Simulated assay, not measured.
Amino acid sequence: MKQRLGIAQAIMEKPKLLLLDEPTSGLDADGVAMLHDLVKRLKAEGVTILLTSHIREDITALSDRVLEMESGVLKALDPAPI
């Protein structure tokens, strides 16, 4: 419930930029599905979303562009992994 509350607080003010750090952490399957739907809707509305995750499924399902950090260096993965 704390994770859902944090997500609700983050989107309450209709931000143009949304930073999400491991947003599916602590969510059940319904919560993950809800978050995926929410992120897709916000993207369609023009919100820029920066998402960090260790869960590859979240990254591939939600990202237009994927960067990976290795040894402190960001590298673009192009095309994004599927």
Rank of each mutant, 00 (worst) to 15 (best):
A33D: 10
L62G: 03
E22Y: 06
M34K: 14
V73E: 14
S71T: 14
I55K: 13
E57F: 11
K40T: 12
A8V: 02
L18P: 10
S71F: 15
K40S: 13
V32P: 06
L67T: 04
D28P: 03
D64S: 03
L19H: 05
L42Q: 05
M1S: 10
K2W: 06
D30I: 10
P15I: 00
P81Y: 04
M69P: 04
I82D: 13
L62N: 05
T52S: 10
K75C: 02
K43V: 09
E13M: 14
I11F: 02
E45H: 07
G72M: 01
D28W: 05
I55W: 08
P81S: 01
P81I: 03
T52R: 05
D58Y: 02
P79E: 01
T52E: 13
V66L: 12
S63Q: 04
A33W: 07
A76G: 11
L74C: 05
P15T: 05
I11K: 00
L74Q: 11
L74G: 02
A80D: 08
D58V: 04
L18G: 03
A8F: 06
A29E: 14
D30G: 10
I7N: 01
L27G: 06
H36M: 11
L62A: 07
L19R: 07
E70N: 13
G72Y: 01
D37L: 10
K16F: 06
K75A: 11
E70V: 15
K75M: 03
E45L: 13
T24I: 03
E68V: 15
T52P: 09
L67H: 11
T24K: 02
H36R: 11
D21N: 04
I11M: 01
S63D: 09
L51P: 06
I82H: 15
L67N: 12
I7C: 07
